[in-house]
Computed example of a mutant assay.
Amino acid sequence: MKHPVWFKDYAKLEADAVELSYYSNHTVPGLFQTEAHARALYAMRKPLLDEDLIEQRVAARLARQVVLTKRPVPMVNCVIEEAVLRRPIGERDVHEEQLVELIRLGRLRNVELQVMPLDHPEHAGLGGPFILLTPTRRPQVGYLEVQNISRLITDPEEVRVLASRYGCIRSQALTPRKSSALIERLLKDQ
């Protein structure tokens, strides 16, 4: 698929976005990961990555996180499956630090963090993770990344379907307040 002329790379598109919407059912989205969590994820990849490449990728991931606080700040919506929050990536302290970071990020005025609880067996997100990005003065696009394969979705009808699905996902997930309370309970249960 040929990308639009204005698309350079995902990080650039993300940095220019006025709104970011994430649905994640396998991992914590990269913008929300702590350094230790990101390192643990890259270290467990198969086939194995060499140490230098792991450090490069961790540094790149952390550098992208400025998006959350740059001015003007984008609106960021994120729905994470409860199973992701229960899966301890890295050592116990890494997992606890990640949960604390999610609570902190969920308190930012421009971030709405929601959890899709395990007791919702049927919901609109069962087709897998995706991202919606609304760049400045450009049409909204979708982005899929699975098994190191990425796809930018620019077809208006495909983007409309993803946006509609995301609306359903958000309505089926816990509210931001209830989501924060759930993450706090998970943290206490560690």
Rank of each mutant, 00 (worst) to 15 (best):
P4Q: 09
D9T: 07
E14L: 13
D16Q: 11
S21R: 15
Y22I: 07
V28A: 08
F32I: 07
Q33V: 00
H37S: 00
H37D: 09
R39I: 05
L49C: 05
L49I: 07
D50L: 02
D50E: 10
D52Y: 03
L53A: 11
E55F: 04
R57E: 06
Q65H: 07
V66R: 13
T69G: 03
M75T: 14
V76Y: 08
E82T: 07
A83Q: 05
V84R: 02
L85F: 03
R86A: 11
R86I: 02
P88E: 07
I89V: 15
E91V: 12
V94W: 02
Q98V: 00
L105V: 06
R107H: 14
E112W: 04
V115L: 06
D119K: 06
G125S: 07
L126A: 06
L126I: 10
P135V: 06
T136K: 13
Q140V: 12
G142A: 07
Y143I: 08
L144C: 08
I149L: 10
S150K: 03
R151F: 07
L152D: 00
T154A: 14
T154E: 15
R160A: 15
S164V: 04
S164A: 13
R170C: 12
S171G: 10
T175Y: 02
T175I: 04
R177N: 08
S179K: 05
L182C: 09
L182M: 13
L182I: 08
E184D: 05
R185W: 01
L187V: 00
K188V: 09
D189Y: 01
Q190S: 14
